[in-house]
């Protein structure tokens, strides 16, 4: 087991990140403000119109995508800025660091998505969910897929010069298949389709998460080591 990774060290890295997040609240504050601002702009733009099912499902994921892009970029960049990369190199294996960060991103993105969805449900009256099971599964699987892909891309951009701007550019082609399928699945949740008919979509989402996590695990060494 020693060769793969140590779950306790991964948890330690997660707790370290979580504590430092609670102290600074950098990502959390930025994310909450980002979500509120984006939703306000959408509400101003939509004004008195009732957006159709397709549009409101799409907008929800646009908000989630760009909020994730503004918050997740910090995960590895902060280590570079604080100069703590060397310490992490010394105390932990690359895979441990990766899974610790993945866990942190997962929790952060979950909190953000719950906040976004609740706000969205309150503010946009035409966004009525008819099949909650599909919707909740979509949010769950979409979140884990999104955090898996954004963690490895965050690790890549932490080493580049233009960190913030490059992040959405690099992530979009990787996330596009996931975004397409979650938007479709959200649409079927709004239309009130039975869960049995949406199983294929969930299989694609699970496969996406597994493939991206496995590849990130295999390739993280090359990104992390200088």
């Amino acid at each position: 087991m020693n060769k793969i990774f140590n779950i306790n060290s991964a948890l330690t890295i997660f707790i370290k990140d979580f504590r430092s997040e609670l102290r600074t609240r950098y990502a959390l504050n930025a994310l909450i403000m980002f979500v509120i601002t984006t939703l306000a702009i959408i509400l101003f733009a939509v004004a008195n119109e009732t957006p159709s099912i397709e549009i409101s499902a799409g907008i929800l994921w646009i908000v989630i995508f760009f909020s994730a892009m503004s918050g997740m970029a910090r995960t590895f960049v902060s280590e570079e800025e604080r100069g703590t990369v060397m310490t992490l190199h010394l105390i932990a294996k690359p895979s441990t660091v990766f899974f610790g960060k993945l866990l942190f991103n997962l929790i952060l993105l979950f909190l953000m998505n719950i906040f976004t969805v609740v706000l969205y449900l309150i503010l946009i009256p035409s966004f009525i969910i008819k099949s909650y099971d599909i919707f909740l599964l979509t949010i769950f699987l979409g979140t884990i897929g999104l955090s898996a892909a954004s963690t490895i891309i965050a690790a890549i951009i932490a080493k580049s010069n233009t960190k913030g701007t490059l992040y959405p550019v690099l992530s979009f082609p990787i996330l596009l298949p996931l975004l397409m399928i979650v938007i479709k699945s959200t649409k079927s949740a709004l239309e009130g389709i039975e869960i049995a008919k949406a199983m294929g979509d969930f299989q694609v989402m699970i496969a996406y998460f597994v493939v991206i996590t496995a590849v990130s695990y295999l390739l993280f060494d090359y990104v992390w080591k200088d």
């Binding site: 890549i156 010069n161 233009t162 490059l166 690099l170 596009l176 298949p177 090359y222």
Partner: peptide, 30 residues
């Protein structure tokens, strides 16, 4: 875009290789 933003040669080479592998793997999903 990724390549042009990294100056160190070895780093640029390995990061862009990693990126193209990840990108290549998402293509079959389409």
């Amino acid at each position: 875009a990724l390549r042009s933003s990294i100056e160190v040669e070895e780093k640029r080479a390995s990061l862009s290789a990693v990126y193209s592998i990840i990108a290549g793997l998402t293509v079959p999903f389409f």
